[in-house]
């Protein structure tokens, strides 16, 4: 039975509770001065990695949190380490928002260098909603994949993953190495406790560049325009039953 070396990519995104606003030029979503947090699906990935270690069914040797993005992404990596990741790698990229394929290529290199045998990714990040990185990575590495996991069990190098599908559940089984992407029901992420936040500050965090991995930030897609959805037509209030009947008649509903 091999020891698990888990790679968990995390992304810094606009906090899910914040209402995103489109910038004036309509080229992107406004990110300046907006609260950012870890992508919620990535929180689930970290939590699952830590739980795999706590369950002690198959020993976990290393949990590596990885992020590519601006300097601030460090905060997210520290959070990941406060939740239980052992170390972090940060590929600093200030200018370009990387596309899923570039990220997948990066992760391929990291996984090879770090001898990862399990990669747990969020099924998507809530900013671009691409839902592609995990799948592309599985293709590049030629590993089996189980997407949208709602339950993960690993024993004797064998992963059993339950996924929620329309009207029921589907259970998959595959041998390590393996790609898993996480869905909402998988677990409930823990709070970062004070002692762990302190400890996380001392955990190793490596800074790298795209060039270190030989990956370019070249974009294949061009964003033409970003628009807010059309404003919802507000409902009206009626004072009483007669008012309601009047309105319904007006609309020809009765």
């Amino acid at each position: 039975m091999s020891k698990l070396r888990i790679l968990v990519p995390v992304k810094r995104v606009i906090d899910y509770a914040v209402k995103p606003r489109v910038n004036k030029a309509q080229t992107a979503v406004e990110t300046n001065g907006v609260k950012h947090s870890m992508n919620p699906f990535d929180e689930l990935s970290i939590e699952e990695a830590v739980r795999l270690r706590e369950r002690k069914k198959q020993p976990v040797e290393d949990i590596l949190a990885f992020s590519a993005g601006p300097a601030k992404s460090q905060d997210i990596l520290r959070t990941a380490m406060a939740m239980g990741a052992d170390r972090g790698i940060h590929v600093v990229e200030e200018k370009t928002e990387l596309e899923p394929l570039s990220v997948a290529k990066l992760l391929q290199k990291v996984a090879e260098q770090e001898k990862s045998n399990l990669i747990i990714l969020g099924k998507q990040s809530i900013d671009d909603d691409a839902n592609q990185t995990g799948q592309m990575l599985a293709g590049l590495l030629n590993w089996p994949q189980a997407t949208q996991a709602s339950k993960v069990e690993i024993e004797n190098d064998e992963c059993t993953v339950t996924r929620e599908v329309d009207g029921g559940v589907e259970t998959l089984k595959a041998k390590l190495p393996m790609i898993i992407t996480t869905d909402l029901r998988l677990n409930e992420p823990r709070y970062a406790s004070l002692p762990n936040i302190m400890k996380a500050k001392k955990k190793p965090l490596e800074k790298k560049t795209l060039a270190d991995f030989g990956v370019s930030s070249e974009k294949r897609l061009k964003t033409l325009k970003v628009e807010e959805p059309a404003a919802r037509q507000g409902g009206g209030k009626v004072d009483d039953v007669d008012g309601m009947i009047g309105k319904l008649k007006e609309l020809g509903a009765i």
């Binding site: 899910y16 509770a17 947090s37 709070y191 970062a192 406790s193 936040i197």
Partner: peptide, 8 residues
Amino acid sequence: DGVVAQDE
């Protein structure tokens, strides 16, 4: 012991 909120 204590915790700090990491997100909203």
